[in-house]
Each structure stands twice: as C-alpha cells, then as structure tokens.
Design a protein around this nucleic acid. Sequence first.
RNA 1: GGUGAGGUGCCUGAGUGGCCGAAAGGAACGGUUUGCUAAACCGUCGUACGGGCUUAAACCUGUACCGAGGGUUCGAAUCCCUCCCUCACCGCCA
Length: 423
Amino acid sequence: MLQVPFIRQNKELVLERLALKNFKETGLVDEVLALDDKRKRLTQEYDETQAQVNSLSKEIGKLMAQGKKEEGEAQRAAVNALKEKLGPVNEELNATEKALHDTLVKLPNLPAAIVPPGKTPEENVEVRRGGDIPTLPADAVPHWDLAKKYQLIDFELGNKITGSGFPVFQKQGARLQRAMIQYFLDFNLDNGYTEYAPPYLVNETSAFGTGQLPDKEGQMYHATEDNYFLIPTAEVPLTNIYRDEIVKDTDLPIKMTGYTPCFRREAGSYGKDVRGLNRVHQFDKVELVQIVHPEKSFDALDEMVAHVEKLLNTLQLPYRILRLCGGDMSFASAITYDFEVYSAAQQKWLEVSSVSNFETYQTNRMKIRFKEANGKPQLTHSLNGSSLALPRIMACILENNQTAAGIPLPAVLHRYFGADKIA
RNA sequence: GGUGAGGUGCCUGAGUGGCCGAAAGGAACGGUUUGCUAAACCGUCGUACGGGCUUAAACCUGUACCGAGGGUUCGAAUCCCUCCCUCACCGCCA
C-alpha cells in the first residue's frame, strides 16, 4: 500500500499517476488525508491523557507505600475521571485507524513515470521482439491435437478426476514438463538466485502481503476449513519469506527462485481462449522474486527482464516484450513487462511471463525493511517475474516445432528430457 | 484427534502487580590492544506512532508494544477470559 506521508507531500503527483492507471475513485486520496489528520489529533489527545494517568498512578503507588491512604484515595478518583474520558477517545482512535487502513488498501500502486498511458491491452507498448516466427506446414495443428497425437496430455481425464482446466500430463508430456522445471531452476541458480520450495497454501496474512487480499479473493481457491488459500503464484510464499524482517543493507539484493504449481479460479473465463493449455486452473511455474535497495529496483527490473529474455532465447521461441499501459497493469505493480510467445498454429501471442517492480507497495504491507549501518529502517522494494509459466511454453514448443517426423526440442532441454525430440 | 507444556528483544534466557522497554549471557556493530588470527577490555546494541527543536539530521519528549484481542486494577510482561501459534508424548497417516 501507499505511504501516507508520501501521499501528503505529493498529492498532485498521486492524483496524476492514479489517472494514468485509469483509477476512478480519486476521492479516496482526500479521505486518506482526512482520516490521517483525525488519527493524529486523536493520538495526541489519547497520549496526553494517558500520560497524566501514568504519572498520577505512580504517585498513588508512592503514597500507598508511605501509608498515606487518604491522599491515595483522592488521587484514585482523579484517575478514574480521566479514564472515563479515555475510553471513548481510544475507541474512536481504533475506529479511525481501521478506516484509514481500509481506505489506504483501496488505493492501487502508482505507475512509474515511464508507464505508457492507456486503458486496454491494445495500448500496451511493444518494447522489442526476438526469435523467428516459424513457417508451419500446411497441415499444422494446434497443441491440443498434438497432445492427443503423441499422448502428452489428457484433458478429458482431468475433467473426470477434478474438472475442466485440470489437465493430466502423461508419458513424454509429463517428462517434458519435469524437464522444463529442472532446466528453468538450474538456469536461475546459475544466475545467482537461491532456490526455495515453499508451501502451496498460505494464510490470510501472506495473501494480504503480496496484494491478493482483500480485492482478489475470488481468484484464489480457498480452503475454508483452515482458512488457507491455494497459491496463485509462488510470488506469494516466496516474498512472504521476508515479511516482518529488517535485513542489513549488505544482505541486499535478495534473489529467490522457486517452482510451484499455481492455482487460479479464473472465474468467468470461457470460450476459445481457454482451449487446451491456454488457460487452466492449475499450472506449473518457476518464479523469480527479488528484494532490493529502493535505489536499485529499476536496475533489478532490467536485469530480470534480460534474464527472462535470455531464457526464452535458449528455448528458441519467438517472443515479444510489452510494457503494459497504466490501465492494463495489476493493482500492486508500479511497472510491468509482459513476455508473450507466439503460438504459431493458433496464430496468437500467449503471455508466459510478467515481470514487475512493486516498489514499496508490497513491502509496506509486509514491512520488509533494511537498515544501513547507523540508519533507520527503510522499506525495501520488491520485484517478481515468471521464468517461466510452463503450459503456454509447452504449447508453443509443440506447435512451433511440429514436423511430420515428430517434435524436435530445443537443445537445452535434451539432457533433461532424455531425448532430442518427441516421437 | 487426545493429553501436557509453553509463546519475553537478533538468539538463549530471567522476571508472578508499581523501582520493567525489560536482568544476564551470546551474537552483531564501533573502538582500544595486537606482527596476523584469537583473546581481553571499553562502548553501542528494539520498533511504531505523536509532540518539541531544526533547513535537515542529531537530539529532547510523550504514548504503545513481552503471540493477538478483550477484561480486572489507581497501576499489568506479571491476574482473568477468548483466539492464534509452537513444542512434547500418544493415536492416525504419507
């Protein structure tokens, strides 16, 4: 969430940036400031009264110790009078703090200055492309047909076991998936990331920390019996590793990677966009998270973008990188780059990675801070990105590489897959 | 699921009503000493939100925080209630 002192000192900028994000409820900004004023006023009133109570109480203690009973009794009455005043003030203060928090949480992160204006995905700005779009044979088919032909994925079986959107990978399909996970993790480890295998269910506090709660509740599967949420991305447990920590500045940057399945309800998605692997409720992903010094976060962002790009290059897939416009960015992000690969048989671009800088939006919720040698604690910045989401990568590999004599795989996967092609 | 114990600062750990924001030890940081390492000695060693002073910081000051929330009391780490969590043993199970 945003920091109130920042809002106070930069109100015009805040309003300007919220407009860039196409955020309508700008009245919340004034509401936040008014509530914060009220909070300060009540805090002062409470503290001053409480200070009197405290000092009087000390005196009573001394009087009692000296055996001056009557004087003590008189003081007691005075303290009780003060306390009667204190109760309502405290109640109002608590209510105000809660209202402030609840209002603050409704404000999205501010987009960075270089975020392009716009409301829809069409207004995202293409930064660059790489790889070559293949020319497929005339009889080329989409990945769901290839999956059937080579017995890689059984979508119907998933329907039986769970429901729509839970594909069953099998045989070479299952092995290809495992090969990619291994390769992606190794690639990340080689580039200085530390590997984690985090829990797949998180508590409310963690889901709040990264911004899934309160507003995106409907997108997560909820284990209500225990009040746990199935993670929609490893970002949630990985970033929360450092929740409520104050690290040394020399510990930064913290670079984490982890493989997890991801669970998304995707309520309201139907039609051909959800065909095959295009959109599923459970999928595998290898994630990157960085916790960095606030002055270094844009360098870290560039580094992560370059990292994901390098990984995509080794897979020899045609891709493009988009800088998302204000209206298409997520609530918590200050700037996001999406990576899309070209699915040659479907003739469409599929998102396979999203790399974002959240600046202090998440870390303020989680209180992830750092301290310099003699300094005060300051919020770090957090970033994350996928490297990569597997289903769509698999879809593209299958479609783009298909030949009459099987599906050759990128060289980097051979040793993990145990063969150079699917046959 | 059952029974029992417990949640105190970076860690260990003392503290059963006022002198406790909290002993002691360790770690860490700064310094002295030292050929280097080690040791020894000295010092520092919480966070949040207010107020004052200030260009700002430092500093001074108030309040809160000993798992969370509520209660008793003039006064709570300490007593009471609720919740959460951890650990041990038993049961069950991968």
